[in-house]
Simulated assay, not measured.
Amino acid sequence: MIRLRAALAFILLAAACGESDGGRYPLRLSLSLPGEAAELELPISAALQTALADSALFAPDGSAGATVHGEAVLSREAPEAPWILHLGVAVPDDLRSQFAVSAITSSASAGSDAFRPSAEALAEAARRAIAGLEAQCRLARGDASGLEVLLASGEPSQLLVAIRYVGDREAREHATRLLPLLRNEDTRVRVAVLDVLGSVGTRDHAAAIVREAHRLDPGATREVYRALARLGGADAVGFLRFAAANEDDPELRAEAERALTSALSGKPPSAADGPRGVDLPKLARGHRQ
Score class of each variant (00 low, 15 high):
residue 228 L to Y: 09
residue 209 I to P: 12
residue 203 R to M: 12
residue 229 A to Q: 05
residue 211 R to L: 13
residue 214 H to V: 13
residue 196 V to G: 06
residue 206 A to W: 04
residue 231 L to V: 13
residue 186 D to I: 10
residue 199 S to L: 12
residue 194 L to E: 02
residue 225 Y to M: 07
residue 218 P to M: 03
residue 228 L to C: 10
residue 213 A to M: 03
residue 206 A to G: 12
residue 238 G to F: 00
residue 204 D to S: 13
residue 215 R to L: 08
residue 199 S to G: 04
residue 191 V to W: 00
residue 186 D to L: 02
residue 225 Y to P: 10
residue 194 L to I: 09
residue 198 G to W: 03
residue 196 V to N: 02
residue 196 V to R: 11
residue 238 G to N: 15
residue 225 Y to Q: 03
residue 199 S to F: 00
residue 186 D to R: 12
residue 216 L to R: 08
residue 204 D to M: 02
residue 225 Y to K: 02
residue 229 A to N: 05
residue 206 A to C: 09
residue 234 A to G: 01
residue 239 F to V: 10
residue 202 T to C: 02
residue 198 G to L: 01
residue 216 L to Q: 12
residue 225 Y to S: 05
residue 188 R to T: 14
residue 222 R to M: 03
residue 209 I to R: 08
residue 191 V to N: 08
residue 223 E to V: 07
residue 192 A to T: 13
residue 195 D to F: 07
residue 215 R to T: 10
residue 226 R to H: 07
residue 193 V to H: 04
residue 222 R to C: 02
residue 206 A to H: 07
residue 219 G to K: 10
residue 237 V to T: 14
residue 192 A to K: 08
residue 195 D to I: 06
residue 228 L to M: 08
residue 220 A to V: 08
residue 193 V to I: 10
residue 228 L to G: 09
residue 232 G to W: 01
residue 216 L to G: 08
residue 217 D to R: 15
residue 196 V to K: 02
residue 218 P to C: 03
residue 233 G to Q: 03
residue 233 G to Y: 04
residue 199 S to A: 13
residue 219 G to T: 12
residue 238 G to E: 15
residue 209 I to A: 06
residue 209 I to V: 15
residue 205 H to L: 07
residue 224 V to F: 06
residue 228 L to D: 09
residue 206 A to V: 11
residue 220 A to P: 12
residue 231 L to M: 10
residue 193 V to C: 05
residue 228 L to V: 12
residue 188 R to H: 13
residue 189 V to D: 05
residue 232 G to D: 04
residue 191 V to K: 14
residue 215 R to F: 04
residue 218 P to F: 01
residue 203 R to Y: 00
residue 221 T to N: 01
residue 215 R to W: 02
residue 222 R to P: 00
residue 191 V to Q: 14
residue 208 A to I: 04
residue 203 R to Q: 15
residue 194 L to R: 08
residue 230 R to K: 14
residue 217 D to Q: 14
residue 194 L to F: 03
residue 188 R to K: 14
residue 224 V to N: 06
residue 231 L to P: 15
residue 192 A to D: 07
residue 202 T to A: 05
residue 213 A to K: 12
residue 212 E to H: 12
residue 240 L to I: 11
residue 210 V to G: 12
residue 196 V to F: 01
residue 200 V to M: 01
residue 193 V to Y: 05
residue 197 L to T: 09
residue 226 R to Y: 01
residue 207 A to S: 15
residue 233 G to H: 04
residue 187 T to A: 14
residue 210 V to A: 09
residue 224 V to T: 14
residue 218 P to K: 04
residue 207 A to L: 07
residue 240 L to T: 11
residue 230 R to V: 06
residue 192 A to E: 07
residue 237 V to P: 01
residue 188 R to E: 15
residue 205 H to I: 11
residue 219 G to S: 08
residue 212 E to I: 07
residue 213 A to I: 06
residue 221 T to I: 03
residue 237 V to N: 01
residue 219 G to R: 14
residue 186 D to E: 15
residue 238 G to Y: 00
residue 202 T to G: 02
residue 227 A to V: 09
residue 227 A to H: 10
residue 224 V to W: 04
residue 207 A to K: 14
residue 208 A to R: 13
residue 201 G to K: 05
residue 212 E to K: 10
residue 210 V to W: 09
residue 195 D to E: 13
residue 209 I to M: 08
residue 231 L to T: 13
residue 224 V to D: 05
residue 229 A to R: 07
residue 188 R to V: 12
residue 233 G to C: 04
residue 200 V to I: 15
residue 197 L to Y: 00
